[in-house]
Design a protein around this nucleic acid. Structure first.
Lengths: 261, 261
DNA sequence: ACCGGCTTTCACAGGACGTTCACCGCTGAG
DNA sequence: CTCAGCGGTGAACGTCCTGTGAAAGCCGGT
């Protein structure tokens, strides 16, 4: 889950990990009439489980984690950098709050606490996360013969759709948003898939291949995705050297290709 | 994964709008030893002024704004969606906090409040945005005929790429960052390879050779990497003496070469 | 429950890259 | 001048990375 679909259209996907049944009950009651998806657990969920839940945010009572509260918090924040983390706990010291926030928590709420405020804080945290992602996608971008229309979730060449799947389009959009910069694999994975890349995961490569294939099919004569060995990928329109389609000596499209500079 | 992605955290740019001189004084004291830039004001600054300050975050005491607190808050959040907004105020009602958060505030802190926690919360608010923003620092450095573009992981001469490999580029980048100083072998190895150099390891020499080779191929007429016997290497653009291309007596390009120092 | 498309995982092959080695020329000190 | 040590050079080798095709898993729609 990334970015674009998340918060505006659909409700927020939230996990609540807390044992305080009274508090949780009131909170759930309040969430009932909303379009949020929520799941409640009295025990800390496995991090892998959390990853699979495609969440926008978690509310976590640190006391239920026990001794390993800090490492758990750190792991969660580390593995899912895009996740909003609101720690919600009973009496806590200044030092604890500061430590939690420094470890990656986005907010720290002390009980007793009204559900309305907690919800507002979760919204604020998710909003902050989504804000940047949303900003990039408004404009339709042109690269070489390629036109990316965010509002259509599609890329076009000469008006014809490339028939990109969701992931393919997200990848393309991310690369396009980088404006010619090289994006490391880890970052691509993190921003398209939403969580940290496992070592040995080849998903990015596979999708680059699919993208290249569709780009080649619709726009031969142009290269778009450039590999940077040991680093990642970069998107830039570049007319294929050996095949000047229009004017052999001076490919007039060349100017467009280098326009970014 | 070394160095290059390693965003050295630039200090946060923060504006504090509050009249509580005691609190502000303590806060400023705490900010003193950090690399944050901060500006304090006892009155709400004009929104246009804020825009011009290129801030990362503001700490705002709503009570100093008076009746128009809400609209001010809303305007600020609206005009600067990327700005972190932490409202910091005295006794406040639940409804006020919820309203503030819904209007776009990222956090709401109630005084009395320890500066350390406020700072940690500002950090938390800015954290995500910073993560993305920092990578934008596409500093491209020019040395002699050579242009180093970090965002491409490449060096160029007259627009043509040198086709540096990852290690080669890291080495070049490191040397360029030293701005003409001599870097000992051990330090180069440590910072590019990430661990201590084994005695007798010649890797640095080999890569210097490869770099020199590619530099010579793309930019003859200039020397870049200078050996310091028994110590290490130094990077500085220097027109080759025996071959003054333009003006024999006074190589006008020489000025350019040394300009960076 | 079935089906089709999308995503993830796997295995393999080719190749780019990094490391190491041996040899030679050069530097600097006595 | 001479020598020991340091740095330059080219090539061989092994490793790891990426491209690629296909099979297996997953999900949504029918």
């Amino acid at each position: 889950m990334t970015s674009f679909v998340s918060t505006q259209a659909r409700g927020i996907r939230l996990a609540v990990m807390d044992t305080d049944s009274g508090f949780v009950q009131v909170l759930v009651k309040r969430l009932e009439p909303t379009d949020w998806h929520h799941r409640v657990s009295a025990v800390p969920l496995q991090v892998d489980t959390l990853v699979g839940m495609r969440l926008d945010a978690v509310v976590l009572d640190l006391t239920i984690v026990g001794n390993q509260g800090w490492s758990y918090l750190e792991t969660v924040c580390d593995r899912m950098p895009g996740l909003g983390v609101v720690v919600c706990t009973g009496r806590s010291s200044l030092a604890q709050r500061v430590r939690g926030l420094r470890l990656g928590a986005d907010d720290w709420v002390t009980k007793p606490c009204h559900p309305e405020e907690l919800i507002a804080r979760v919204e604020a945290v998710v909003r902050r996360r989504t804000r940047d992602a949303l900003r990039q996608e408004a404009s339709s971008r042109v690269i070489g013969e390629l036109e990316i229309r965010s509002e259509h979730f599609q890329a076009f060449v000469a008006g014809a759709s490339l028939d990109l799947t969701r992931r393919e389009f997200e990848l393309l959009q991310l690369l396009a948003g980088a404006e010619g910069r090289v994006l490391p694999r880890e970052e691509i994975y993190q921003r398209v898939w939403g969580y940290a890349m496992a070592r040995g995961d080849r998903s990015v490569d596979v999708f680059v291949r699919k993208l290249r294939s569709k780009l080649e099919r619709s726009s031969p004569g142009w290269r778009y995705i450039h590999t940077h060995f040991g680093v990642g990928y970069r998107l830039e329109g570049e007319p294929v050297a050996g095949e000047p389609l229009a004017a052999p000596g001076v490919p007039d499209t060349g100017a467009v290709a280098l326009s970014h500079a």
